[in-house]
Nucleic acid binder design. Structure first.
Length: 578
RNA sequence: GCGCCCUUAGCUCAACUGGAUAGAGCACCUGCCUUCUAAGCAGGGGGUUACAGGUUCGAUUCCUGUAGGGCGUACCA
C-alpha cells in the first residue's frame, strides 16, 4: 500500500488513460492550505495546454470518467472543478477510515520497500586525525547518519563509512614534529591537540620545516616501519577522541576507514591508468584530464601525483572507489561533504567514469553537498577569537541548558541523577540535531547557538515532548499492546490527524529522492502540531462513546509510532518521560 | 576574468519541483493550567518573494539583465 495521494493518483491514471491523456499529469497532491478540498489534481490544465482545449472541459471529462467507474463509488465525498481547471477531491470519511486501518496494520506504514540486496555506501563525518572536531563536522555527521538510517529503512543495505583524513601532509607534519621534539613516550589526545596546530603553523611559515614534513609524509607512505608505528599510535588515540564525539551525538558508522585504506590500491590504479593513457604527464604532475568539449566552465584536471610524486586527496578518493566496489559492490555511493567540494567531486566522478573504475550503468555516484555553516555576519562560522568552536563545547553547553530547564520546571524532582542526566542528554542532542537537520541540506545556514540550544517551538525537544506525552497517555489508557480497534470513527476533530498520518510515504519518498532529511523534519513537526491540537480539542480518556474513545486511542498510538519512526530516522532518541 | 550557489515577515527558515489567498518557529500583543505532561494550546498584527523585463491560463519556482552576498577556480584537505 502507499499513501492516499498515491492511491488517488492511480485512480486518476486510469481515467487519464481511458481518455487518451498523458498519465504523467495525473498526479494527485495534497491540497494547498486554505483550499476547501483535501487533494487536488492539476493535470487537466497541463493537458489543455498540449491539446489546446478548454481546461475546465477536460477536467469535466476526467471527473465524469472517474465517476463512471463503479470501483470508485465509495471513495469520493466530492470531486469537482475549481478555478482554472483544478480537480478538487474530498474523500468519504469511511474511505479514510478504511485506509487508516490498513495503514495501522502495515508495519511499514505504507512505505514501500526496495528490491533486496542492494548496497549503498555513505561517506560522511570525515574528521581529520589529530584535529579536534569542531562544529563544522556537525552537518556532515548528522545529515549523513540520517541518510544512512533512511536508506536502511527504505530497504537498502546501508553502510556508513567515516572516511577519516589520515593520510595527507598533515600526518607528515605531526611525525616530523615528534622527531624535532625527540618525544618518544605515549601520545595523548591533549598532546595531539597541541602538536598539530604548532606543526601546521611552523610549516606554513618555514619552507625548510615544510620540507621535513613532506619527507616524513613520503616515508610514511612508502611504508617506513618507525613512522608507520608512530602513525598507528596517534591514529588510535585520535579515533578514540572521535568516537567520544560521535557517541555523544549518537552518530553511527559501520566502518572506520580512512584515506590510508585506499593506499594499497593506488599503485596499481596509477599503472593501469597510465597504460590506458587516461593518466598523462603535465607540468611535472600526473593528471587525468576531465574537461569535456561542451563544458561551460573550465574544468581543471584531476591530479593523481604531484610533481614531487606524492598523492593528493583526489587520488585517494578515486582509489577508495575501487576499494569500495571490491569490498561491497554498491549500487551507489553518497558523499555527504561540504558543497564547496563540488568541483572536486565532479573531477573525481568524471575520472571514475572515464577510466571505467565506476561504470555509469552499474554504480551511481552522488555528492550530497551541504551548505556552509555561517556566522551572523554571513561568512563561514568562526568564534570571536577567530577559531572554530569545538564540538564538545557545543554539546556540553546544550546539555547544561537542558539540565537547567529540567530543574526550572521541577520535573527532575522525583528523578535520580542517572535519569536526570539521561533526559538532559537526549533533549540536548535532539535540539542540536533537529536545529541542523531542519535546514535544507544544500543551502548555507546561519549558526545560531541560541537557536540550536532552544527547546521551544519548532525544535527537537518539542517533538520529544509530544511523543512522550502520547506515550504517557497510552500508558494511562493501559494500552501497552496494539489497540484492537474494529471501527475507526472519523469526526471533524480526527480528520486532520488521520489525513496527515496517511502522508508519511509521500514525505519519506521525497526525502529519499532528494537526500533531504529536512523534509522529514517538516513532516514530523506538522504531525506533532496536529496531534497537539487534537489533544487539546478532545479529551480522550474521559470520552463516553467507547468506540470513539478506542478509535482515538488508535490514532494516538499510530501517531506515536510514526513520530518514533521519524525521530529514529533523524537519529533522535526519545526519553521515557520529560 | 570565468564558473557555481544564494537574496522570501524584524530575525532564522519552509513552500510537495509551474498551481488557487506564499507557510512555520522566534520576537511582539490577547486569552487558557480544579480532566489525559503549559518544553503546551487558541487567537492577533507583520510580505511589492532584492530590482527590471520576458515566457504562459498561472512564476518564489523557468529564461535574460541589474544590484548585493557567498564559494570555487592544477599540485592543501
Amino acid at each position: 500500500m502507499g499513501s492516499l495521494s498515491q492511491e488517488l493518483t492511480l485512480i486518476m491514471c486510469k481515467a487519464f488513460k481511458a481518455l487518451g491523456l498523458p498519465t504523467e499529469h495525473a498526479r494527485v497532491q495534497i491540497s494547498g492550505q486554505g483550499q476547501a478540498a483535501q487533494f487536488q489534481c492539476n493535470g487537466a490544465m497541463a493537458c489543455a495546454k498540449i491539446a489546446r482545449k478548454n481546461p475546465r472541459e477536460i477536467a469535466k471529462n476526467i471527473i465524469d470518467q472517474v465517476n463512471q467507474n463503479t470501483d470508485n463509488k465509495d471513495i469520493f465525498e466530492d470531486i469537482s472543478i475549481g478555478g482554472a481547471g483544478f480537480i478538487n477531491i474530498t474523500l468519504k470519511d469511511t474511505y479514510i477510515a478504511t485506509h487508516l486501518k490498513n495503514l495501522i496494520k502495515d508495519v511499514r506504514f505504507g512505505i514501500l520497500s526496495v528490491e533486496p540486496n542492494q548496497t549503498i555506501i555513505l561517506d560522511y563525518g570525515g574528521p581529520n586525525v589529530a584535529k579536534a572536531m569542531h562544529v563544522g563536522h556537525l552537518r556532515s555527521s548528522i545529515i549523513g547518519d540520517s541518510l544512512r538510517r533512511m536508506c536502511l529503512h527504505a530497504g537498502y543495505e546501508a553502510i556508513g563509512d567515516v572516511h577519516m583524513g589520515d593520510w595527507g601532509t598533515p600526518m607528515g607534519m605531526i611525525l616530523s614534529e615528534l622527531d624535532l621534539t625527540g618525544f618518544d613516550g605515549e601520545i595523548t589526545m591533549e598532546m595531539l591537540a597541541k602538536i598539530y596546530p604548532k606543526a601546521s603553523a611552523a610549516c606554513k611559515e618555514d619552507k625548510n620545516r615544510m620540507a621535513l614534513a613532506r619527507e616524513a609524509t613520503r616515508k610514511l607512505q612508502d611504508g617506513n616501519n618507525y613512522y608507520t608505528n608512530r602513525w598507528r599510535e596517534f591514529i588510535d588515540v585520535s579515533i578514540k577522541g572521535m568516537k567520544n564525539n560521535f557517541d555523544a551525538l549518537g552518530v553511527h558508522f559501520d566502518e572506520w576507514k580512512g584515506e590510508s585504506d585506499a593506499h594499497p590500491f593506488i599503485k596499481d590504479m596509477i599503472e593501469d591508468l597510465k597504460s590506458k593513457n587516461i593518466a598523462v604527464e603535465s607540468e611535472g604532475a600526473l593528471i587525468v584530464p576531465v574537461a569535456h568539449d561542451d563544458d561551460k566552465k573550465e574544468l581543471p584536471p584531476l591530479i593523481l601525483l604531484k610533481s614531487d610524486g606524492a598523492v593528493l586527496y583526489g587520488t585517494t578518493d578515486l582509489a577508495t572507489i575501487i576499494e569500495r566496489i571490491k569490498s561491497h559492490n554498491p549500487i551507489k555511493i553518497i558523499y555527504v561533504v561540504d558543497q564547496r567540494q563540488a568541483l572536486h567531486f565532479e573531477q573525481v566522478f568524471r575520472a571514475a567514469r572515464k577510466s571505467s573504475i565506476a561504470p555509469q550503468d552499474s554504480i551511481e555516484l552522488i555528492h550530497a553537498g551541504f551548505g556552509t555553516m555561517n556566522g551572523a555576519d554571513g561568512k563561514p562560522f568562526k568564534t570571536r577569537d577567530g577559531g572554530v568552536m569545538r564540538l564538545e563545547g557545543l554539546i556540553s553547553m546544550a546539555i547544561e541548558k537542558a539540565q537547567i530547564r529540567l530543574d526550572e520546571a521541577a520535573l527532575a524532582k522525583d528523578m535520580d541523577d542517572n535519569e536526570r542526566d539521561d533526559i538532559a542528554n537526549k533533549v540536548a542532542i535532539a535540539a542540536l540535531k533537529f536545529a541542523d537537520l531542519q535546514n535544507n541540506r544544500s543551502a548555507d545556514y546561519i549558526f545560531d547557538i541560541d537557536r540550536m540550544t532552544s527547546f521551544e517551538g519548532k525544535t527537537g525537544p518539542y517533538l520529544l515532548y509530544q511523543t512522550v506525552r502520547i506515550k504517557s497517555l497510552l500508558k494511562k489508557a493501559d494500552a501497552q499492546n496494539d489497540i484492537a480497534c474494529e471501527e475507526l470513527k472519523i469526526t471533524n476533530s480526527d480528520r486532520g490527524l488521520a489525513l496527515l498520518l496517511s502522508e508519511l510515504p509521500d514525505h519519506f519518498d521525497n526525502a529519499m529522492k532528494l537526500y533531504a532529511p529536512h523534509i522529514l523534519c517538516d513532516y514530523a513537526f506538522k504531525l506533532a502540531q496536529e496531534f497537539s491540537s487534537f489533544y487539546g480539542n478532545c479529551h480522550i480518556l474521559s470520552e463516553k462513546d467507547e468506540i470513539l474513545k478506542l478509535s482515538r486511542l488508535a490514532l494516538c498510538q499510530q501517531t506515536y509510532k510514526q513520530l518514533s519512526l521519524i525521530l529514529n530516522l533523524l537519529g533522535i532518541e526519545i526519553p521515557a518521560r520529560m
